[in-house]
């Protein structure tokens, strides 16, 4: 194939699972996972904000772990299992975290929301697995599901509308934690 500048590019075949379905693509190896999702698969729930790993709008789960899909090449994900916001719920049947974001007004413009939601689901798993964070007191005991822990762990997801207090409230509510 040739790119928009006329350069010849050798496409690379990659197969991965997206939201439970196996897919095979032939891609210019420069295509990031975020772009593959949006432009090649039409999964536009994943947003591209800064395109440099600062804002977290592109957060997806790969093999259950949250990563910035803008900072990884799609072809690096051979055999991986990828979850995007489209796999979480439907407009009729929301995922409970999506419902919690609506209940607590955890957004205004909504652009960062898919990334916020996927990141927050992973954050709860990380806390339950006892993975330490910068604000964790003892490194040897369980990690509390506190606002402080949630806030620190969500620092890779920016919200230009500054809905942060309501995002924390939504996550706390979903996780059954006390304020």
């Amino acid at each position: 194939m040739t790119d928009t500048d006329g350069a010849v590019v050798e496409p690379v075949r990659v197969s991965f699972t997206i939201n439970g379905g196996l897919l095979t693509l032939e891609l210019d190896p420069r295509v990031t996972l975020a772009t593959a999702l949006r432009e090649h698969l039409g999964l536009t729930g994943t947003k591209i904000g800064c395109d440099q790993g600062q804002c977290g709008a592109c957060t997806v789960l790969v093999n259950g772990r949250r990563i910035n899909s803008c900072l990884t090449l799609a072809v690096m994900h051979e055999g991986d299992s990828i979850a995007t916001v489209e796999g979480l719920g439907t407009p009729e049947v929301l995922h409970p975290m999506q419902a919690a974001f609506i209940e607590h007004d955890g957004f205004q413009c909504g652009y960062c929301t898919p990334g916020q939601i996927l990141s927050s689901l992973a954050v709860i798993e990380e806390i339950r697995a006892g993975m330490p964070s910068h604000v964790t007191g003892s490194l040897e005991g369980p990690v509390p599901l506190s606002d402080e822990e949630i806030r620190e762990r969500m620092s890779g997801n920016l919200c230009r509308c500054a809905a942060y207090p309501n995002i924390i409230a939504a996550i706390r509510d979903y996780a059954g934690a006390k304020p």
Binding site: R66, L71, S119, G130, M131, L139, M154, S155, G156
Partner: peptide
């Protein structure tokens, strides 16, 4: 998060979790 790093090399755990974001550290 490795148990031995947390127990025996906590300065390394503390340094790692003070860097970047959760997504990047993964």
């Amino acid at each position: 998060a490795h148990p031995r790093v947390r127990q025996h090399y906590p300065v390394l755990t503390r340094a790692l979790v003070s860097g970047a974001s959760g997504q990047l550290r993964n």
